[in-house]
Simulated scan of single mutants.
Amino acid sequence: MTEDPRQTGNQASFAAFKGVSRQTVTDWKQRGLLVFSDDGKVDFLATDQRLADHGIRQPANIDLTGVTSIDGEPLWSRADAETVKENFSARLKQLEFERESTRVVTIDDAARHIVNEFGIVRQRCRTIGAEIAPRLSGMTSASEIKAAIDDAVVAALADLSAV
């Protein structure tokens, strides 16, 4: 009976067998998760079992591009999952810092600010009629009335740009 050549091998061949990076296998070795045979090669099946015992449930001998977990995401090794977790944690910390230092704002905050600004513009525009009506009452020329309205609008816009 011949032994399956994929049952033992070096760390690189085990990485290919598991579908993970060589660095992941090196991390597993440093954590004491690799099982070695008497000749110093990685025992693939025993190492698979040890990985499973430590919560790393990545199947061997399967093309991982089509394998998904219950939620439809690809399976990762614990080391890869920890790397992803750390990267996203760092991104969240960066975003929190930028938000607190006002380098970025939330969409809700920006929308509230815009709504407030438009409210000020709307209110200022509504007051133009009441401000200009007494001056217009004595005017009879259309050009005179237009000039007075234009002046009132320009003044209102100047007030708004100062806010």
Rank of each mutant, 00 (worst) to 15 (best):
F44R: 05
S37D: 15
S89V: 00
D53W: 09
P74A: 13
V42D: 02
S21F: 05
G40H: 11
D71P: 11
S77F: 01
I62K: 14
G32C: 05
A79I: 03
D39N: 10
T83L: 10
P74I: 12
Q30Y: 04
T47E: 04
G9R: 04
D27S: 04
S37F: 11
A46S: 10
T65C: 02
Q11P: 00
R78L: 08
E82R: 14
R22Q: 09
A15L: 05
Q23S: 06
Q58Y: 09
R22N: 08
V67F: 15
A46G: 02
E73D: 04
L45A: 10
V84P: 07
Q49R: 11
D27P: 00
A16F: 06
L64G: 10
D80A: 11
N87V: 12
Q11H: 03
L45D: 09
P5I: 08
T65G: 04
E86C: 06
N61E: 11
R50P: 00
T8I: 11
G19R: 08
F88S: 10
R31T: 00
Q30W: 04
L51W: 06
N87R: 15
S69F: 11
D80W: 04
G72Y: 07
P59T: 13
L75M: 12
E3W: 07
G40C: 05
I70Y: 11
L34W: 04
K29H: 07
I56V: 11
R22I: 01
I56L: 08
G55H: 03
S21H: 08
D53N: 12
W76Q: 12
T65V: 07
T26F: 01
Q7M: 14
L64N: 13
A46N: 05
A46D: 10
L34M: 04
I70R: 13
G55M: 06
G19A: 09
A52F: 09
R50C: 02
A60L: 15
L34N: 03
T2H: 13
Q49H: 07
F44P: 00
V67P: 00
T47H: 03
D63Y: 13
T26I: 11
G19S: 05
N61S: 12
Q11W: 03
G32I: 05
L45N: 02
G72C: 06
T65N: 11
N10Y: 11
G9N: 07
T2K: 15
A16T: 13
E73Q: 10
A52K: 14
L75G: 01
W28R: 02
F17P: 01
F88R: 14
G72M: 06
R78P: 01
P74W: 14
E86N: 15
D63S: 10
I56F: 03
F36E: 07
T47V: 05
T65P: 00
S77C: 05
A46P: 01
G55A: 06
G32Q: 06
G9A: 07
R6V: 00
I62V: 15
G32E: 03
I62L: 15
E73G: 00
S37K: 10
N61R: 15
D53K: 12
S69W: 14
V20G: 01
T47G: 04
S69N: 13
K18T: 06
G72I: 09
A52R: 15
D43W: 10
R22G: 09
E82A: 14
Q11C: 02
D48H: 12
T83E: 12
D63N: 15
R31M: 04
A81L: 12
